[in-house]
Amino acid sequence: WRRLTNCEFRQETFWATYVRISIFIPILATLPMYLAKTMTFGDMMQTRTSFARVQDSFGWFTDAYRRLIEWAAVVERLSGFQTALEQAEQEGRSAARSTSASAPTLNNRRHSGTLALQNLTVYTQTGSPLLTDIHLQARSPEWVLLEGRSGIGKSTL
């Protein structure tokens, strides 16, 4: 959190300094011509306006920086989620092939559109049982509603 805060602070400080200083760059660049009376004050302000428009066009990345970082984080989380789903699917297939009659099994027959859970136990990360001896059978396109008090493992299942 501190690294994120420091990074955002540095980025915002850079951006604020850049905006403040860039206001004076065209004025300082045209000031000698104005003092030599080869340029009018109106020309100097037009130069400043033109510089600001070009600067805004080139400043797209710094304007969109935060949105790009948020998108990158979302893509990274979705990629990790997809990897975890694929790994869980592989483990489920391995467990279904190697289980005995008394062990929990996951039977997902794609050709029949049936999902069957028999003797399933869901554990927390610490190894404590969250839900035990679950039996469930659902056919596509049925909806299944899981009800219960908060914290018993509905979302985990």
Rank of each mutant, 00 (worst) to 15 (best):
E147D: 14
F41L: 11
L115N: 11
H135P: 14
A29S: 06
F14S: 05
L117D: 01
T13M: 03
E76C: 00
T156L: 11
Y34K: 14
E8I: 15
P141F: 11
A95H: 13
A73K: 01
V144S: 04
M44S: 08
E12Y: 03
P32N: 09
E76Q: 01
D63P: 08
L4H: 04
S102A: 03
K154T: 00
I21D: 01
F51E: 04
I23W: 09
T17C: 11
E142W: 02
R139T: 15
V74W: 00
E8Y: 14
F58Y: 04
L78C: 02
T99S: 09
L117T: 01
Q118P: 03
S94F: 13
K154V: 00
K37I: 06
Y34E: 12
S79K: 13
S112C: 14
L136G: 15
K154S: 00
S150I: 00
R93K: 14
A138N: 10
A16E: 04
T132V: 10
L115F: 11
F41A: 09
T156E: 13
R149C: 05
R67D: 08
S150V: 03
Q87V: 15
T156R: 12
L145Q: 08
P141A: 12
I134R: 14
N107D: 05
M44H: 02
F51N: 04
Q46G: 02
T121Y: 03
A72E: 00
T156D: 06
A29R: 06
G42M: 13
E147N: 15
F51K: 06
T5D: 12
F61W: 07
T30K: 02
P32R: 10
V19W: 08
N119A: 12
A88G: 09
H135E: 15
T38K: 10
T13H: 01
L85M: 14
R93G: 13
T13N: 02
A96N: 03
I23N: 07
Y123I: 14
S150H: 00
W15T: 01
Q125E: 12
F81L: 04
T49E: 10
T83R: 04
D133L: 11
I25H: 09
T132E: 12
M39E: 06
W15M: 02
Y34M: 14
T47R: 01
A64C: 07
A16F: 04
A95T: 13
V54N: 06
D133F: 11
E142N: 07
M45Q: 14
S128A: 02
H135W: 15
Y123A: 12
L120C: 15
S150N: 00
E76T: 01
I25R: 08
K37M: 10
Y65M: 11
G80H: 07
L85W: 05
S155Y: 08
D133G: 13
A73W: 00
L117P: 02
T38G: 09
Y18N: 14
F51C: 06
R66P: 05
I27F: 07
W1M: 11
S79N: 12
T121I: 03
T30Y: 04
T47W: 05
Q87C: 15
R10G: 03
E8M: 15
V54Q: 05
F41I: 09
G153A: 05
E147H: 13
